[in-house]
């Protein structure tokens, strides 16, 4: 039985749409509240990022709680970078007790790419072990083998990188995530639908739902910067050229158009089970993308 509306939608034949909101480096959460209110009824779930790019911010658990309080459906992003197994398990107990039941399990970016480069990287677990750990909690015991008086139940997902320049090792890891219990995948940014098609030929043998990651680009410069500095992103030259061809100031508009076009094709050709839109700081444009892609959530 589905444990959340998101899990229920994953189980239906509906084209699932998720997006993400990044918490602020601030105690003023008004902008995040605004973004959540703007998006909560237009998508099936909102991911809250966990110190994205290893930059210290308001926590993902706090953001997910806020989504819940505002009547939305949160996906709690959880990385292994900052917490050991005690802290991760504790946060999961807290999340479940407050109705947060969708979790995206990530290893987490390296501390070296963030804004606290001298911090101790934890990585007590990796993403595969985190997935397994959640299944262990659900069985009624913690990682120490001790009984939980009441066990949680989660809908758990992970990421996969279909556009990695050396994809085979990534596919091995994908298999391990499936075996560890992942029910859904939100992919790293897709910029070339051919690679998504190739990946889906492989992934369709598994009983998991794949949501293609769509990153909204705002300029050719941003695309090049991401290629050089953001882990897990490889923007294709075709897309960079398309962005570079527009006049200055029209980049984001072009980025919206590219994102909408890709989403539309993915849906029409039924390439995968849905999309995950990552607007990286431009959350306000997501409704426009949904409209342009002719995806308005009922």
């Amino acid at each position: 039985m589905a444990n959340s509306s998101f899990e229920e939608k994953l189980g239906s034949n509906k084209f699932v749409v998720t997006t993400e909101v990044g918490p602020p480096k601030s105690v003023d959460i008004s902008e995040m509240v605004h973004h959540i209110e703007l998006l909560k009824d237009k998508v099936d779930a909102i991911n809250i990022t966990d110190h994205q790019s290893s930059v210290m911010r308001f926590p993902s658990l706090g953001g997910a709680l806020l989504v819940k309080e505002l009547g939305g459906e949160p996906v709690l992003q959880m990385t292994c970078r900052d917490r050991n197994r005690l802290a991760l398990q504790a946060d999961l107990l807290m999340a479940y007790s407050r109705g947060i039941t969708n979790v995206l399990c990530l290893t987490g970016d390296s501390v070296d790419v963030g804004d606290h480069k001298e911090a101790k990287p934890v990585f007590d677990l990796d993403s595969v072990q985190l997935l397994k750990m959640i299944r262990t909690l659900e069985s009624g015991t913690d990682m120490g083998g001790n009984e939980l008086k009441a066990a949680p139940r989660f809908c758990i997902g992970a990421t996969v990188h279909p556009e990695a320049d050396f994809v085979e090792p990534q596919l091995v890891k994908f298999d391990k995530k499936v075996a560890a219990g992942a029910q859904f995948f939100q992919t790293q940014g897709i910029f070339d639908l051919a690679s998504l098609r190739r990946f889906m030929q492989y992934a369709s043998q598994f009983n998991v739902k794949i949501l293609a990651g769509i990153i909204v680009l705002s300029s050719a410069g941003m695309a090049r910067y991401m290629n050089n500095n953001v882990p897990g992103i490889i923007v294709s030259q075709t897309i960079i050229d398309e962005l570079a061809a527009v006049e200055k100031g029209k980049g984001l508009q072009k980025g919206i158009e590219i994102a909408a076009r890709m989403i539309k094709t993915i849906k029409e050709e039924k390439l995968c089970h849905g999309v995950h839109i990552m607007a990286v700081g431009n959350e306000r444009v997501v409704p426009g993308i949904l409209e342009a892609a002719e995806l308005v959530n009922a």
Partner: peptide, 16 residues
């Protein structure tokens, strides 16, 4: 990490 590469690897190099 013990179960394979993270997604940050590019051209065989480390994200860090």
């Amino acid at each position: 990490i013990l179960n394979g590469p993270c997604a940050g690897t590019k051209k065989g190099k480390c994200e860090a």
